[in-house]
Structure formats: C-alpha cells, structure tokens
Amino acid sequence: MNFERFQNQSRLYVIGALEPEETEEFEKARKKFGKKGEDFIAKCYDLHEAFALSLRPAKSSDTIKERLMAMVKAKKEP
C-alpha cells in the first residue's frame, strides 16, 4: 500500500468505515509507515470535530447540568 492509499484508508478508519477485509492490510501499512502514519491518523481525527461543528448546536434540558454536577460532587465525596 502506498502512502496516498494509506491516507484514503486512514480517513475511512477514523470514522469506522473500513470493512473487515480492509482492516488487516491497513494495520500492516500502519506498522510500515510508523510515526508518519500515526501522525496522519491523528490529524484525520479532526474530521470528527469538523462533523460535530457542522451541526447547529442544540438546546439541552436545564436540569441536565444540575444532575450532572450533583453526580460529580457525590462521586468526589469520600
């Protein structure tokens, strides 16, 4: 697998869209490309952030934060 192909596969990998039969070849290429490959995969995760930011933010129920913080405080107590 050349690096251009690896880049295409990496973008599929980070969104979980690699098919099982592609995964083995991808993992071999990942080892072959080492740090260069890992750095590229890390950059591909920016796609997650972008997809989330592409959506219009939604309003949450006002009680969610209160419940969350109460649970966190309860968990912190010895």
Binding site: A52, R56, K59, S60, K65, L68, V72, K76
Partner: peptide, 21 residues
Amino acid sequence: DDALAQLYDRYNGILKALILR
C-alpha cells in the same frame, strides 16, 4: 468539577446536536 461545568457550558450544544443527529 468547576472546570467540567465550564466545559459543559462550552460544548453541550455541539454534543447534543451530534447525539440528536
């Protein structure tokens, strides 16, 4: 936990939109 509250205020809308999607 105050930092979590701030992170919640900053991103709850984005994460809620993602979950709703």
